[in-house]
Amino acid sequence: MKNVTIRIPAALREFAGGMAELELQAVTAGTALEKLAERFPLLSQRIVDQDGAVRTYVNIFVGETNIRDSSGLETRLADGDIVTIIPAVAGG
């Protein structure tokens, strides 16, 4: 298990009890999101779909790397990693 920090931007904090960041232990980005879901199910519903895939309008970064450009939910974590949830910002 690796000790990582999950950072939650202001746009999503209402689904996380107002929490800006939390620390947890996980091996991959996917297991980090599963642990996040145990604590904040409403936040999890915004991040992943019913099949557990990251929704198209949300991006997960491990450090500076978007997990879509890496190994997705299987992206390995290292001690001290910061996992940031970035919501899509778009409109017309």
Binding site: P9, A10, T84, G91
Partner: peptide, 24 residues
């Protein structure tokens, strides 16, 4: 008729704001 902000741009601004104890 549409706009979208690149996720990596959001991440950069988010990190800069966090360093100053501010939020996006």
């Amino acid at each position: 008729s549409y706009y979208e902000i690149a996720p990596v741009d959001f991440l950069r601004v988010e990190n800069e704001a966090h360093a100053r104890n501010r939020d996006v």
